[in-house]
Structure formats: C-alpha cells, structure tokens
C-alpha cells in the first residue's frame, strides 16, 4: 500500500475552512441571547423556557438530523433530567452545576433505555411508535411514583443555591436566564465538535446507508446507542434547566405533547445543522407567545398551516430557506436534505 502514494503527485485541493462560520454563528447566538436579556427584561422566564426547549430540539436533531432516527418521545429524556434534578434539589443537593450534571446523567441513562428499545426496530414507523410508547410509560411512571415526583401535583419547592455561591436565582429570572444561555452556548459548541468527530461522521453514514457502514466494518448498533446517550444528556440538561429556573417539575415535562412540539420546532428550523433547532424553537415559541395571547385557537390553526407550508414548500426548514437565498452554508447536513 505504501507504493500507492507515488503514483500521482497531484495534491488534493485544500479544505475550505468551516470554522469561521461557526465562530460567527456562536457569536450571533450569544449576541441574540444577550439582546433578549436587554430587550425583554420582563419576559426572562419565557426566554429561559425557550432555551430549555432549544436544548430539547437540539437533542432531537442529533437523532433525526444526524442518525435518521425519528422520535416522538424525546420528552422522556427531558423529563428524566428535570425530575432527577428536581428530586436531588428537594433532597438537599442544591448546587446548580451539580444539578445540571445530575440532569445530564439521568437523561443519558434514559437515552440508553430508549435506544435499546427503539433500536430493536429497524425502520422509521415502528421506531416512532416505540418512542411514543416509551414517553407514555415514563409519564405514567412519573405519575405513579408520586412519593418522589409529586404525581399530578408536580414536584414543587425546589430552591437551588446561588450560582457560583454568589448569584441568587432571583424573582425576575435574570440569573436563570444567563445561566441557561451559558449552558446553551457550551452545549452547542460541544455538539459542533461531536458532529464533526469521526463518531459524528459515522452517524451521518449510518443515516444514509447502514449496510455500507457495515461493509466498512463498523457496527451500527453501538454507534447509535452512543448517540442516544449523548442526545439524552442534552435533553436532560434542558430538563434540569427547566427545573432550576421554574423551581417546579410537572408531568407535562414528560409528555407526548412536549415531544411532538419540540419535533415540530426542529422541522420548522431545519434538521441536520444544529442551527435549525435554535431558529425553529425561537420562532415557534415567539409566535406562540404573541398569537396565543390574542387567541389560543388561532395559535393551533397557525401551527397547522405553518407546518403544511413548511413541509410542502420548504422541506429543509427555515435554515434551508436561508441557505438557498443567501448561498451561505450553515454546515454540512447530516444526510440527504
């Protein structure tokens, strides 16, 4: 094989540097996040909720956008993180970063369980059905284990300690919001590295053709299971953030509805870029806030119409539209667009 190199001394064209785009992207996310802080000081609770949902949507993108696994049960992982952080908090572990870590670990364990079950099925529809079944089971389990979770009343009375021992989680939600923004940026940067790693490339390959990946000598199942755990830890961080910021955990955090909404946000923004998850969440929840305060019925109608329009006319989501009209690539997509 050593002799091959001498056959043709032509060099490959140099790789285009994608890094500056992501540096700009991360800077933009930070700028928008801080702008939200200054512009909407009365709505920081809502904005923190947006960040928690963005983490959930990101976690779905890892599965849908990079592995081709459809799921309508991701809130099981979000809820696992929320309840784990919540239960830890009412039992005396109140340091915020520790709570987030507990949420991440719980989410990734839930992801492991979910992956083991969902990967039994090899196709989209059975996987989708299993994911719904799992989130319903988690929901029921959280309901039944009321001694721990508070059941349908929810788990209340969380009082997380001050951030860095200095910044109290205040009534206006300033600390919670900035904490959430920091978490989101950190997670986003880490995920950008993950999806570009050898592992991330393997996942993209599996998304397009698992048989080819097998013929390359790589096992598919452990790779996907690993992604389920990474995805679970991201969702779990989102859940923990929700728990810390609202100081309650309710059954709605492990619901099918939450899972479905997060998937809609992701599809709206566009799959397989990570940016789409953020854009979709912000736009979806922004619209929801504005329209549903006028008339809740209109909101549901609008979501329906919006989805139909997106799927028919912009199947690659808002970020896809943006790429088309600006010629700017947000990053290599996880597979066929």
């Amino acid at each position: 094989m050593q002799t091959l190199a001498q056959t043709q001394p032509v060099a490959m064209p140099q790789p285009k540097r994608a890094w500056w785009r992501d540096i700009v992207g991360v800077a933009l996310i930070a700028a928008v996040g801080l702008a939200g802080y200054w512009l909407f000081p009365d709505n920081l609770a809502l904005l923190t909720r947006v960040i928690a949902m963005a983490l959930l949507a990101l976690s779905i993108d890892l599965l849908v956008g990079y592995c081709g696994i459809a799921t309508l049960g991701q809130a099981a992982l979000f809820g696992a993180g929320a309840y784990a952080a919540g239960i830890a908090c009412v039992n005396g572990i109140t340091e915020p970063f520790t709570l987030v870590l507990i949420g991440a670990v719980a989410g990734s364990l839930a992801g492991l369980v979910m992956g083991v079950v969902m990967l039994r099925a090899s196709h989209g529809l059975p996987q989708l059905v299993l994911s719904i079944a799992i989130v319903q089971l988690f929901h029921e389990a959280a309901n039944k284990a009321s001694a721990w979770t508070g059941g349908s009343d929810g788990l209340a009375g969380l009082s997380p300690a001050a951030l860095f021992g200095v910044f109290e989680f205040d009534l206006w939600g300033r600390t919670a919001y900035l904490f959430g923004l920091g978490l989101l940026l950190t997670v986003f940067i880490v995920l950008k590295f993950v999806v570009r790693s050898p592992f991330g490339m393997l996942c993209r390959g599996i998304k397009e053709d698992p048989v080819r990946v097998g013929a390359m000598g790589a096992f598919v199942f452990p790779v996907l299971l690993k992604m389920f755990m990474i995805s679970g830890s991201v969702a779990g961080i989102g859940g923990a953030l929700a728990a810390i910021s609202t100081q309650v955990v309710g059954l709605d955090s492990v619901s099918f509805e939450l899972s479905a909404n997060a998937l809609v946000m992701l599809v709206l923004g566009g799959i397989g870029t990570l940016y789409g998850a953020l854009v979709g969440t912000v736009i979806f929840m922004g619209f929801e806030h504005v329209v549903s305060s006028i008339n809740p019925f209109h909101w549901m109608t609008l979501v329906g119409v919006l989805l139909i329009v997106m799927v028919l006319f912009a199947p690659r989501g808002l970020t896809g539209l943006m790429e088309t009209y600006t010629g700017l690539k947000l990053g290599k997509r996880g597979g066929r667009a």
């Binding site: 490959m12 050898p198 993209r204 053709d209 990474i230």
Partner: peptide, 27 residues
C-alpha cells in the same frame, strides 16, 4: 452504496479510521 453528502476523501478517511478502531471517537 455511498454517502451522497460526503466527499471521497471523507469516505476513505472514515474507512481507515474504522480499520484502526478509531471511527467511534467522539472527542
């Protein structure tokens, strides 16, 4: 059977990393 969104270089790199047991690395 190829990955349409990847480049030839990426295909071969991924294959070699797999052969060396390094294709599963996240970090």
């Amino acid at each position: 059977r190829l990955f349409s969104e990847m480049t030839p270089e990426e295909h071969v790199t991924l294959t070699i990393l797999q052969r060396e047991g390094r294709a599963n690395r996240v970090f």
